[in-house]
Write a protein that binds this DNA or RNA. Structure first.
Lengths: 135, 135
DNA sequence: CCAGTTTTGACAATCATTTTCGTTTTCGTG
DNA sequence: CACGAAAACGAAAATGATTGTCAAAACTGG
């Protein structure tokens, strides 16, 4: 609804990867916005509550957000270097998780699955830098 | 090596679920130990570096640890209520993750997979409380 | 333009985790 | 056993992301 929240959603949409609240705040300020950090957090909270953005935690516990194309259940293939993410479906995994849960008598089974790696672009760039010392 | 680290490992082994550093610190102090919080963090850091314990992040970003039976790659089926965890293998998932990564040109592909649910014991208890109002 | 509600943002407060740094233990060696 | 270096400790301060507080600003219907 509000303009601010829209601005945050917009900033998030401009990136194909996951961004942290602090990142987005920096982006928006860099673009000249006078938005406050608190508002960015509030907007992200609202957006994730409504399912409009996906959230996940980095290894050091920081929350990162992404505006995905689909709001239906999916997972991500994330580049460790540039953080770009590809949305992936995994019917195989969905079934597997449900079965594993049931087999052990668990109810209300859900799961989190994220795949990490180095995307093609970053792989090539890193390989070049590694061999030719082009810094 | 050190006695303190051994105490932390021990405290962790006594639980079948994931515990946070703060939890373990409280446990140890409750048992009369004079260990410091800093040491608990250091021990957990060392233990996870050496692969002796598994770490994952809760939804609110807190790090939780578990002393698993095997040091080889595996995943967990975790109870949302009591945090008890079962170690699970998922050859299907391993293959799937590798394929997905390769298909999109990613290299050095890894993945995180955790399954959550309510374990049988907790399910029954919650069901009873729900129907009979036995609080 | 006005009273009331919602949104905002500066600043303070939280809380897990990390650093810092002086003290205590552990250990190898003479 | 004694001694000094190195490793381990722990209390307290620092850090950094996130949340709470609260007064000012923007928006609403009338």
């Amino acid at each position: 609804m509000s303009t601010r929240r829209e601005a945050v959603r917009q900033a998030l949409t401009e990136s194909s990867g996951f961004r942290s609240a602090q990142d987005l705040y920096a982006d928006l300020r860099a673009d000249g916005s006078k938005i406050g950090l608190t508002t960015v957090y509030r907007a992200l909270q609202a957006l994730s509550d409504s399912g409009e953005v996906d959230v996940l935690r980095t290894d050091d516990g920081e929350a990162v957000y992404r505006a995905c194309d689909t709001e239906s259940h999916h997972h991500h293939l994330v580049c460790r270097t540039c953080s770009t993410a590809v949305e992936i479906e995994g019917p195989t995994v969905e079934r597997w998780a449900a079965e594993v849960g049931a087999k052990h008598g668990f109810t209300g089974v859900t799961h989190t699955v994220e795949v990490f790696g180095t995307c093609g672009t970053c792989s090539r760039r890193l390989a070049q830098q590694g061999s030719a010392q082009q810094v």
